[in-house]
Design a protein around this nucleic acid. Structure first.
Lengths: 193, 193
DNA sequence: CGAAAATTTGACATGACTCAACTGGAGTGG
DNA sequence: CCACTCCAGTTGAGTCATGTCAAATTTTCG
């Protein structure tokens, strides 16, 4: 199993020593996911931390009316999982679906807990990973409650320039919380300005 | 310094041994904050993790038009700080203000880093604290992008039953992202249903 | 190439905001 | 204890942002 992208990833935080790297290596599995394939569906319990090697995923909820709402995108070198379901062991209400043909590295819940207990460096690294995710999400909350749809769209473009060329406007609309039709209106207005 | 409420708090996660508790104790300071007093203002760097012993705080941003947007409330036994400013060392754009006369325990940034380095149990505990905060915030994002103002209000009441009796509707309106006037309309409608 | 999905457009409906006015309670100082 | 102010809460009229629905067009991907 080639976990080197993940080892490299952790070097930005707190590097793994050989023992920790070996322990991680033993507990990682590789998975290939087709476009439109799922890592998680409502009713399932999220059993894995998923690290995206290539491709891109979206995590979303479908409401009573059948509308989808994107919570998160995860291109390569990002984590994606339903934290709530994972840690509380409750069934999820979210989908995690591949937007492109993708590859992930997976750590199963008990394996992760063994890593936490055996090597404090994993507590450290995942503390930092989670803090960063929290900070990003907080900025999103702030934007969502204080900005117009147009401002939220512009922020998305600025914050995720690579993603905006890679995923459809339908997906972006669902992320920023507007209908695709209205996003189209916004884009038209911006284009003529 | 009586840090026992904080020691008790950590027992729900991973209990501190005597050495860790002592180290924590040495690095904690106590602060009393008057109603409408501030722990943080825009332009300042957030230097402390704040654990609320009593009272209640709000963290909010004021936009260009002068409107406030509440990001978080923190009654007793909750943490409040600007994670982004704290970890990135950048000046904050947020206020943290007491809604009631309050008391907090503070850990300064370098002291926290010493705790992290000296006692892995703090990496562990703050990993868990941050994960829980992340999960809560994720639920909020989901609600904010997928629910009407009325649904968001009802969710707030259900999620924070104690807070809704303690803070004004102006504050709740700012949290759920509507004007106080419109919240009033919602409440009227709910009362007559 | 063909089916499915994305994007755009327009007419219409509605949720939520703005502004201004009014009410009523809580604190404050005389 | 009163007069005063300040702020939370409410109400209503008018407006704006965004959603809904339906249809036509273009793009994507299998």
């Amino acid at each position: 199993m080639d976990v080197s992208p993940l080892i490299v990833y952790f070097e930005d935080f707190w590097s793994l020593d050989d023992a920790a790297a070996a322990a991680l290596c033993e507990r990682i599995t590789y998975k290939r996911v087709k476009r439109r394939g799922f890592l998680l569906r409502p009713g399932e319990i999220c059993q894995h931390f998923n690290f995206v090697l290539s491709g891109c995923f979206k995590m979303y909820k479908v409401d009573q009316k059948g509308n989808s709402h994107n919570l998160q995108f995860a291109p390569e070198n990002n984590w994606i999982m339903d934290h709530g379901s994972f840690y509380e062991g409750k069934s999820s209400e979210l989908y995690i679906e591949a937007l492109e043909p993708s590859e992930v590295l997976q750590i199963k819940n008990n394996d992760l807990f063994e890593l936490y207990d055996g090597f404090p460096v994993f507590d450290r690294n995942f503390r930092i990973v989670t803090e960063n995710a929290f900070i990003e999400q907080q900025k999103r909350v702030l934007h969502t409650i204080s900005s117009t749809a147009e401002e939220r769209y512009l922020y998305f473009l600025k914050r995720y320039p690579d993603l905006s060329n890679r995923i459809s406007n339908v997906q972006i609309a669902s992320y920023i919380g507007v209908t695709p039709e209205f996003l189209s209106v916004i884009r038209k207005k911006l284009a003529t300005t």
